[in-house]
Write a protein that binds this DNA or RNA. Structure first.
Length: 411
RNA sequence: GCGGGUGUCGUCAAGUGGUUAAGACCUCGGAUUGUGGUUCCGAUAUGCAUGGGUUCGAAUCCCAUCUCCCGCCCCA
């Protein structure tokens, strides 16, 4: 035998026995998002590399080490590692700025990141997400979070934790970063390697380091004071508290998490995650936030926006498995032309029908029928002669011989 | 990218240096050429992730590579 070829590391087949859950995720998205006025958008799976460098941020891990990038005719192209940049690109390019705000879009599809695979993390994975453009008020943040919770509820997922935080605007965040860096400067040499790296790249990330020695440093009073200070400016604080009051009024439970930072550069003000305890260490099913400067940074008109994405594989692993359903009927016959005609008629009437195509023995056909179908439709010499079909209920073993036209009504 | 574990049929597995690699499920065939789902009989790994090595002898020991899993980093 020839050597077999395996799937690429970090990718997976979605097999027929698992496809129903995927349909459920997609159908529920269509239903729930539709009710909020979201329209589906499908953008290409690869884009100009520059889109992600400028959109996601060229200091992020995603852009720095996780992208599948290739050259073609002097152009650098990249398999999308996430879809916000692509949707924003399309929003700008197709003049959606001119549409009456808010513009509400949703998508689902494969994303690609070159990471070490483990539970809940693949190199090709799928996301479903929403983006809302044109509303700067915190009501938009609230609705988008509400939508996420609604979607999860519609899937039967209630036992999840919503965490929120505000990163402030670029101005107040920069001040905060500077103060953190200042107060930590004398301790720099004592930080772990990861933290030294974060110190330069993303000081906000320093705060949730798990290394003991770092934790001790952050516990020092003068440092703790800076870390825990409310750095965000008045306007941002108001935006944040308004969001919280909406969530309170809607009965959406959430926890505030000051350490919630998120790794994509484009977020400002609201960020949030939805977590599960049943996912191992990759415990976030949903992540998102506000990104008011992204449209402008990508060459569009200054347009506020907010959105989120969920990992569909992670959602799937939280969903109970869907058992395969039996088909309506299996035609048991060694008279193929007649069997084809019967099946065709029933399929037109909306039934799911299969036929034995291999001319197997009667008993084998019936055995097969009992495994996969609710009814066996026996079509033998006698039945054909009399234009009848013997309809056998495979659960109750009841059997009736009826006119061929009457079969559809019985199954 | 770093650290730890793992890998025997389509699936779940026994086997820890000595001749033909248990068993179960699934699949297929027969008992059973018009009545199934129960039962009974039979078939199915010249091979143990892959490639080397040690040995008279390797699924079993050693080395390398790969996979998947777990943790870190990061993220959905």
């Amino acid at each position: 035998m020839a050597k077999i070829i395996n799937v690429i590391k970090g990718t997976k087949d979605i097999l027929p026995q698992d496809i129903s859950s995927w349909h459920k995720l997609e159908q529920t998205a269509l239903d729930v998002f539709g009710k909020y006025g979201y329209k589906e958008i499908r953008t290409p799976i690869f884009e100009a590399t520059e889109l992600f460098a400028r959109g996601v941020g060229d200091t992020t891990d995603i852009v720095n080490k996780e992208m599948y990038t290739f050259e073609k005719s002097d152009r650098s192209l990249t398999l999308r590692p996430e879809n916000t940049a692509g949707v924003v690109r399309s929003f700008i390019e197709n003049g959606m700025t001119r549409l009456s705000a808010p513009v509400k879009l949703w998508y689902h599809g494969p994303m690609f990141r070159y990471e070490r695979p483990q539970a809940g993390r693949q190199r090709q994975f799928h996301q479903v997400g929403v983006e809302m453009f044109g509303v700067k008020q915190p009501a938009a943040d609230a609705e988008v979070i509400m939508l996420a919770v609604d979607y999860l509820k519609a899937l039967g997922l209630n036992d999840l934790l919503v965490e929120i935080n505000s990163l402030g605007c670029p101005a107040c965040r920069d001040t905060y970063k500077k103060r953190i860096k200042e107060v930590l400067k004398p301790e720099f040499e004592n930080l772990c390697d990861d933290c030294k790296n974060r110190y330069e790249k993303n000081p906000l990330r320093l705060l949730d380091c798990k290394v003991e020695s770092c934790r001790e440093i952050f516990e020092k009073p003068e440092i703790k004071k800076v870390i825990e200070s409310d750095f965000i400016c008045e306007e941002c604080a108001e935006h944040y508290s308004e969001l919280k009051s909406y969530l309170d009024k809607m009965g959406i439970k959430y926890a505030e998490n000051k350490l919630l930072v998120r790794g994509l550069d484009y977020y400002n003000r609201t960020v949030f995650e939805i977590k599960s305890n049943n996912l191992g260490s990759q415990n976030a099913v949903c992540g998102g936030g506000r990104y008011d400067s992204l449209v402008k940074n990508l060459g569009g008109e200054d347009t506020p926006a907010v959105g989120w994405a969920m990992g569909m594989e992670r959602l799937n692993s939280l969903l109970p498995p869907i058992l395969p359903e039996k088909i309506d009927a299996y035609v048991v016959s060694n008279y193929l032309p007649e069997a084809f005609l019967l099946a065709k008629k029933l399929r037109s009437a909306g039934k799911t029908v299969e036929i034995d195509l291999a001319n197997k023995k009667f008993m084998k056909q019936l055995e097969k029928a009992s495994k996969i179908a609710k009814f066996a439709l026996i079509l033998g010499e006698d039945e054909i002669k009399n234009h009848t079909v013997s309809v056998k209920n495979l659960e109750t073993s009841e059997q009736n011989t009826v006119k061929a036209d009457e079969v559809a009504a019985l199954i």
